[in-house]
Design a protein around this nucleic acid. Structure first.
Length: 280
DNA sequence: ACGCCCGCCTGTAAGC
DNA sequence: TGCTTACAGGCGGGCG
């Protein structure tokens, strides 16, 4: 499932591949992927004929800036992929739901078997504002928005929630999903069910540092591709961070730090992996 | 305010 | 062997 490191990897790929290109046509091939527009035609008029000027990211959202101030927003959901294609003759993968064709040739395709992803165009951001109204609910971005650990402590203690639930809450911090939440909490030596307002200053510092370092390292390795998921970058290549995982998807295996057995529990309907010895 | 559950959706894998 | 069931989870919404 694409989380911040996977989305950031694709953002960097897009920067080199589609910035400066003009969208000639958009083909919408199913009724679920393009959302927040009355009709697919209304969406098409928002993006056709426009040139992509920059690629930004907010949490797990990709933001393709267009030359008239519009933003083309892409969320990959659980199984979404963006694929670069040379042209219309290249065979389309199953579940190809949107195809952007550039005037200079070449295509950008959105493929998404589980259709949890979405695409929409926004007229924003308004002059003088930074954030799209549709994404106003998102919390700070762990890599884009640097903050002091003291400020992080204030934010943490203003909630009384289980640490994992809070780290996955996109309104608190944007971009962390089930997999990286487990990896971050392992690196910090903290259990998933510790209450956010119960941490010592040392634990807060460790959590903040673990969040930034884990995500940074995962970006360096171009994200995680597990056996049961389909994450691929813009060129169809798998990531390289899954081999570095300490907790996620390692039930029954030895903890790489203390050799105790990694435990799997269900929390809020989600699988949670942790070391009962290293994480307190 | 927070935890928890559901529905959405398909591919894979385990179970009978 | 073949069908059924469980699981994977991002996100929004509802409920206690």
């Amino acid at each position: 499932m694409p989380e911040l490191p996977e989305v950031e990897t694709i953002r960097r790929d897009l920067q080199g591949e589609v910035v400066g290109r003009k969208i000639k046509t958009v083909e919408v091939r199913n009724g679920r992927t393009v959302r927040r527009h009355a009709t697919a035609k209304q969406f098409r008029t928002c993006v056709e004929g426009k040139t992509i000027t920059a690629i930004d990211r907010a949490g797990k959202y990709l933001l393709l800036r267009l030359d008239d101030g519009y933003t083309l927003v892409v969320h990959l959901g659980m199984s979404g992929q963006l694929q670069r294609a040379k042209g219309p003759k290249e065979p389309k993968a199953p579940h190809t739901h949107a195809v952007f064709t550039f005037t200079q040739g070449g295509q950008l395709r959105f493929v998404d078997p589980r259709t949890f992803g979405e695409i929409f165009a926004s007229a924003g951001p308004e002059e003088g504002t930074e954030r799209l109204p549709e994404l106003a609910h998102l919390g700070f971005d762990p890599l884009e928005d640097v903050m002091s650990w003291e400020k992080f402590w204030v934010l943490l203690s203003s909630h009384k929630a289980g640490l994992k639930n809070l780290m996955m809450d996109q309104e608190f911090v944007a971009g962390i999903g089930n997999m990286y939440a487990d990896e971050i909490l392992f690196a910090a030596g903290l259990r998933y069910d510790r209450l956010s307002n119960s941490l010592s200053s040392q634990e807060v510092r460790r959590l903040y540092r673990s969040m930034v370092e884990t995500l940074t390292e995962a970006v360096k390795r171009r994200g995680s591709s597990l056996a049961d998921e389909q994450y691929r970058d813009l060129f169809g290549e798998v990531g390289d961070y899954q081999g570095q995982h300490q907790a996620y998807d390692r039930e029954g295996q030895a903890c790489r730090r203390c050799r105790a057995t990694i435990v799997k529990v269900k929390s809020g309907g989600r699988s949670t992996y942790f070391c009962d010895h290293c994480q307190v």
